[in-house]
Each structure stands twice: as C-alpha cells, then as structure tokens.
Design a protein around this nucleic acid. Structure first.
Lengths: 334, 334
DNA sequence: TGGTTTGTTTGTCATGGACAAAACAGAACG
DNA sequence: CGTTCTGTTTTGTCCATGACAAACAAACCA
C-alpha cells in the first residue's frame, strides 16, 4: 500500500537532495535531466523517482564521480556503481582515503559478506527496526572493546557500512537516522563517564556552517577525551568568526573541524585557509571527516604563505591519525 | 585587536543569515539594503556590518516584524526593538505564544533583572566562558529540581534568556552553541538513566528537513520519557516520506515535530498538512517549538478536510502542554 | 614518465520580470 | 464596539537566459 508519492517543488528538492536550485536548473538545461513537470504557474514539479535518482547521483558525485557521466547511465548501473564504492577514475583517487573510514582499510571489500560479524549483526538489527537489540549489541561491544577500540574498530566501519547499505537501497534514511542517534547517545554517555577536564591540549570541536554531521566529531572527541585532552564541543555550524572568538575565549590549543563528503567541495579549501589566517599561529587546525582531503589545497596555500611546511593545518584521514596527532602534539610541547 | 573582518559572498551571507540569495537580491533591489560592494567580476561582496544587521533583521522578522518596516530603522533602534521582544503590531500578536517559551509567561519582563537568580547565575557563567561552573550550576539545579521541573522551569526560560541576550548583543553565537551543547549533554545523560522503554504511547521525535534545532525535541523527550512513554528519536531533518515509513516501522502512536522560529514560515502549514495526509489517521501529530503556531492553518485545513475538529494535529505552545497532551492521550485510550 | 598546455565540464552568480500567498488597512455590517 | 469582508500592498520565491572562473581531463612535449 504505497502512498502515491506527490511531486516536489524545486525548493523541496533542494532540501531533500542537497543540490542547489541553480544546479538543478542548469542540469535540466544541459543534460535534459531532471525533467520535471510543470504546474499551472509554470513552476517545476519533480516526480519522486527523479528525486530518488538525484539523491543517488548526488551521493556518487560526493564520491568523486562527475555529473556528465552519470546522467546518461541507466538506473540499475547507477546502483551497481554506487555499490562498488568510490570512483577510481583518474585523479579522483585522491579522494579515496577521505571517503573510506579508518579501519575499513583492512577489510578489502565493503560489500562482500566479509564484514565483521558484529557489524553484520548490527546491520541486521537496524534493518529490522529492533531498537533494543541494536542497543544491546552496541552496548555489549562497547563494554567488551572499551571506548577506544569501539570507536575505531566498530563505530567507524559500521557507519561506513550503513552508508553503503543506504546506497544499495538496503537501508532507508530514517533507519540511518535512528542508528546515528543511537551511536551518539552511546558515545555521549560514555563520554560523560570520563574523568573529564584537565590535561594538556585544549581542543575545540565544531563544524562550519552548512556542515551538519557531527558523528565524526563525537568519535574524535571520545578518543581525545579518553587520552585526557580537554574537549570543548561547540556542536555544528559555528561561523568562522565565532570559531576564532571561541578559540581565544577558551584558550584552545587545537581547533578540530569535520567535513563530510557532502560538504560543497569547492568551499572547503578557501574556508580552511581563511580560518587558518584568522587563528593565532600557535593554534593548530585539525581537519577530519570524509571531505577532509579537499582541504589539501589549503595546506599547500598555508605552506607557501608561511614559507614553512603544512603550517598549522593537519589533515586526519582516519580516526587513528587523530590519536597519532595527539601524540605528536604532546611530544612537541612540554 | 580586531581582525579586519573580510567581506562575504552572497552564498556565505545566505549561510550566515538564513536569508536566501533571491531574498537578498530582492531586498537590495527594493529597499536599497543591503548594498554590497562588487568584486572584479561584478559579484556581490557584503561588508561584515551589513551582515550583522541582516542577522538582526532576520531574527526580528522571525518574531513577527516585517522587512519593509525594519530596513529604514537606525541600528540603535533596531537593537532596542530586539531587546523589547516580540512584535506587538496588529495581528502578528498571534505569534507571541509561539515565540516565548513556556514558563516565561510568568516572568512579566524578560530583560529586567527580574529573572530567577539561577538563570542569572547561569547566564553569568556563559558570558564568562566558565564551563565547569556552568556545568556545576546546571547539574545542581537538575538534582535539586528533578528532571521534570528542571526542563520546564530552568532549561526553557534559560534558553529564551540566552536567545534574548544574543539579540541584545550580550552573548556571542559560540557562547550560545556551547550552552546548547551542555544542556544537550545533560539531558541525554539523565535520559539514559531513565528506566526506558515500555509504556503506552510510542512517540517518534524528529524535525523536518531545514530544521536543525533539536533542543526543544530533547526537552520534550525528557518529559515524555519521564512519564514512561517510549521515545524513538530520529534526530533532525527527516524527510516527510521517511517519517511515514518510520512511523509505520516503529508502530508509533504519536509523531512529534519541532519548528523553531527561524523555520521558513510559509512552509510550515503546507508541510504539516502534507505529513498529516500521509500518516495513518490513528497516529497523532504533535507540533512544538517557537514556530509551532504557524501550523494553525494546517490544523484548520485538516479539520475541514476531515469534517472533524483539529483532526489529529495538536499544537503544543509550551512544554507543559506536552504533558497535558500525554495525559489526554492516555485517558482517551486504554 | 612527468610536467605543462589546451579544451571541457560544472557550479555559481547576475539581471529583470513575474506572480501568488500572506499581511495589512479600511469599509461595511451586525 | 467588535467582527467580517473586501481591496491593496508587501514579500518571498520562481523563471529564463547569459556569463564566467575554477576544476578537471586529455593531449602534448620533454
């Protein structure tokens, strides 16, 4: 008994897909897709299936594909492409590390059933909407592995697996949402049990405006707090200028940002550079998340600008690397 | 030593103010404000002060003022206007209840120092960036008052007070962020300590795409969970269609949505109506938050459509009313 | 093989016109 | 005096088209 899925206006599609109005109109003009119907006033009405397709395409673009190549592809092939993982075409390979979460590197193949049994089990519970079972499974894993390993070996890969399952159409958005909420709750919970406050680097964690995903941030916070660092979480969407103010006010040693793969790619490097310029030189800038690699250009810019290498910007391609960075920081200072 | 605050592009302004590109251009055309400079390519560059003004104006509009009246007003008067609170002009009064948080009604004047001492103290700590003190104050209040009263009497009014202080320029965005994070942590923490699961209504909590504020949702969740209700939190930004799926999958009795004052007003009623139409009739729809009043039109529409009163849509103008709604629901059923 | 140059692709911005829904103001009416 | 009903203004959003710079791919040369 499927509801008849009504058509969407252009602004609704913008919300649901993350593709701007201008982009949607440009694609229509150039590629002939999407090809929305029109209402009485001549305004676009996008059929639901086209919106689904747009969502999928958006996700593929975030992985390094390009629109021109995708619009012509048949739906089936598109799904298959999505299942395969990150695009391997040309230079886009630079994005690979950024998209895959840390520990996944060990698992050669994301979609074969070679996943860790724990992750398999969690996925099953998610699909079955069995909240209690999911909670129990995760809680058990947390207790068995400890926070550190749990974050690195379980949460990371599981999040990737969920994302990939979504791409394959095996998991609905709301299931992903629910999973995310559960993990957040769990991490916050164990976080609040930590001794808290005190030691060495004071880390300010946040995302820039337009970036809503804070799960990665929370994972890093868990790891750092576990090592005794003092974390100051600002939540999502802190304007650049306020980050500078906050860093000053809280005497932060490090500002940690997270960029997801869906963050507008073009803006990453400029924004990071700008922020770098605004912060006091002794404050380090750590960049993580699926879109972190895109900040490479900013590192280069900062390097030339300061006549020194990678001056104060550090890209964290994995969760492990956050811990390494922490070690480095500590050994470099008192 | 203020940094020279660079100019912003139109998309940056859109992000920072919440005003759409089209709107920004339309205002410029019609009112002559903002009046951005242009770069070499003819693209708009907004000076920082104009962006500040835009932010303020946006907030005033969310409170019921109208752009045409505001653009001409001097900056000082604007701030004064902001400090005074909600617009009292004409019919806009209907918005009053929606913007003010529950318990504030008792406090006749938000800006006079007539605030509860507890709230005064918390505000002081926020302004001083004294995280430990803030945590301690809040924790103490939580323990003394219990979750229920803490949420209704402290968190609600305090959040309003923080918002108003921001309007008066007494509090920075990042301070508001930090405060919000702290409260969220606290609530989640006490939430995780609740027996959990089980009793009567199964409530699905989320916001629609474009609505990021989940604090209100968390407050309601705390209250409902305290009364034994089963809460299923989906976090923010669940697409309409997925809400329907989730409601089915989790056999929800109630779907609770939250709209902040900054949610695009025009969309509230249509969206709520649409969702109402998609959900099974026996599932109730509860609407809360600063922008909830705007859903009144949807209630009316649902009423005429169903030839029955307020069919299945309930607007919660305050936190208390959530508890009342719960009672009503329970006494109406088994 | 590695670096540079030359087309292409692609997102975003600008202009100017249009329109419908909402907000308002004022008249008419009970 | 308060309410309901109009006509008018305000306001956000949409449309079409054109333009351009940055990112990319591919051909090219050393």
């Amino acid at each position: 008994m499927n509801a008849p899925r009504p058509h969407l206006s252009i602004s609704a599609v913008e919300r649901d897909t993350g593709l701007g109005k201008d982009t949607l109109r440009a694609w229509e003009r150039r590629y002939g897709f999407p090809s929305p119907a029109r209402d009485d006033c001549g305004e676009r009405l996008y059929p639901a299936e086209q919106v689904d397709r747009l969502r999928l395409i958006k996700r593929l673009i975030d992985q390094g594909h390009r629109p021109g190549r995708l619009v012509g592809v048949a739906d089936a092939d598109l799904v298959q492409l999505a299942a395969r993982g990150t695009a391997a075409t040309g230079t886009a390979a630079s994005c690979v590390e950024g998209c895959a979460a840390p520990a996944t590197a060990g698992l050669s193949d994301g979609q074969a059933s070679g996943l860790a049994p724990l992750i398999e089990r969690a996925l099953t519970h998610i699909r079955a909407h069995d909240l209690p079972a999911l909670q129990q499974t995760l809680n058990q894993a947390l207790l068995r592995q400890g926070v550190g390993r749990f974050v690195i070996d379980t949460v990371g890969p599981l999040s990737v697996a969920v994302g990939e399952a979504w791409m394959r159409g095996e998991i609905e958005v709301f299931e992903e949402h629910l999973y995310t909420e559960q993990i957040k709750t769990l991490l916050r919970q164990s976080l609040s049990a930590l001794p808290g406050m005190g030691a060495a680097p004071r880390v300010l964690l946040t995302t820039l405006p337009d970036e809503l995903h804070t799960l990665g941030l929370l994972m890093v916070q868990s790891l750092l707090a576990l090592e005794g660092a003092t974390c100051i979480p600002l939540g999502a969407q802190t304007p650049l200028f306020d980050i500078r103010l906050a860093a000053q006010a809280h005497a932060a040693d490090i500002v940690a940002l997270s960029f997801s793969a869906s963050f507008p790619s073009r803006q990453v490097a400029p924004l990071v550079s700008q922020l770098r310029g605004m912060l006091p030189p002794h404050v380090e800038l750590w960049i993580g998340g699926g879109g972190a690699e895109r900040a490479r250009a900013a590192v280069a810019a900062a390097a030339t600008g300061n006549a020194s290498d990678g001056q104060g910007i550090r890209i964290l391609p994995s969760l492990d690397s956050a811990l390494q960075a922490l070690e480095v920081w500590r050994s470099a200072r008192g």
